[in-house]
């Protein structure tokens, strides 16, 4: 792994120590075993009885009740939840945009989130997109020991999720760290993240160069992932068109996030790395100042 990536991880981890991950609204507060889910589960705390339905665990049938009422009744216990955060880091080539600290910003942010999660007693798992979504080497550990992180993925995030989705832990908090600059339906991806999740947050990390169109004149654009060329004449009208397109794209993602009960925040890498202020995530109730 490149040295600047490791440095970014360390700095981000240090910055994240100031924050704590906020427990999702649907998850009871507490550490392992004390974080109780709203649904029936496998904990020892009895919740209620209900009629047996096909597919219920036969081990949960209350045979005593059956003897008394001749009805198959199952005992429901409150689900016991281990607080956990799953982070999917988009490691496509666009995240390491040339001459920008975009990759470092994204890595630092992931490291900060894991630090904040640790402060809240959450375990974490970090995935990267690489021929599907595969765990980062030592991704369950402290960011300082993560390894084999590269930004060379050529396939779209949507495809990676379809090919090999992350091993989401049920009821986990799920976050996507990406520039979100890829084609595809944001709602489909958002739904995929939200299924079985306690909370979902999409964090868009952009470089200043992503938000600011090129200066006037003729520009030969090169796609960082596909290498595709496009020659355009940039003038004031073109600059405005680009800004409008970016705003519309961000609005699509924001709307998709809202539809699945998730939140979305955007960071500019250059600004983020100035003071590592994660206030937008605090405002979104994803983090709280520790």
């Amino acid at each position: 792994m490149e040295k600047q990536y490791r440095t970014a991880l360390e700095i981000g981890f240090m910055a994240g120590m100031r924050y704590a991950l906020t427990a999702p609204r649907r998850v009871p507060a507490g550490v392992i075993g004390s974080h109780m889910g709203q649904r029936a589960g496998a904990s020892l705390e009895f919740q209620e009885h209900r009629d047996y339905q096909p597919g219920d665990d036969l081990r949960r049938i209350d045979w005593s009740a059956y003897a008394r009422t001749d009805k198959l009744t199952v005992k429901l216990f409150r689900e016991e939840v281990n607080p956990h955060i799953d982070i999917l880091l988009d490691t496509s080539a666009s995240m390491a945009l040339t001459e920008t600290p975009k990759a470092e910003g994204a890595l630092g942010l992931v490291a900060a989130l894991t630090a904040a999660a640790g402060n809240s007693g959450f375990t974490h798992a970090v995935y990267q997109t690489r021929d599907g979504c595969e765990p980062v080497l030592n991704g369950n550990e402290s960011p300082t020991v993560w390894d084999d992180l590269t930004f060379e993925c050529q396939e779209p995030l949507e495809e990676s999720l379809a090919k090999l989705p992350p091993a989401w832990r049920p009821r986990s908090v799920r976050m996507l760290i990406s520039d979100l600059l890829f084609m595809g339906d944001p709602l489909l991806i958002a739904q995929q993240f939200a299924q079985g999740a306690a909370a979902v947050c999409f964090v868009q990390v952009l470089a200043r160069e992503d938000t600011t169109p090129p200066h006037r004149g003729n520009v030969r654009l090169v796609d960082s992932e596909t290498g595709e060329l496009r020659e355009v004449f940039v003038d004031a009208a073109m600059q405005k068109l680009y800004r409008d397109s970016l705003a519309a794209h961000q609005e699509n993602w924001n709307r998709a996030a809202l539809q699945v009960g998730a939140s979305m925040r955007t960071f500019i890498a250059q600004d983020l790395m100035t003071d590592w202020d994660l206030a937008p995530l605090v405002e979104a109730a994803v983090l709280q100042v520790g």
Partner: peptide
């Protein structure tokens, strides 16, 4: 010198699809 094409690598061309190519 002023009008020659300057090379610029972008994260994605998706936002430029609505922009008319110069040629």
């Amino acid at each position: 010198l002023r009008n020659r094409y300057r090379k610029r690598t972008v994260s994605s061309l998706m936002l430029w699809h609505s922009v008319t190519p110069a040629k």
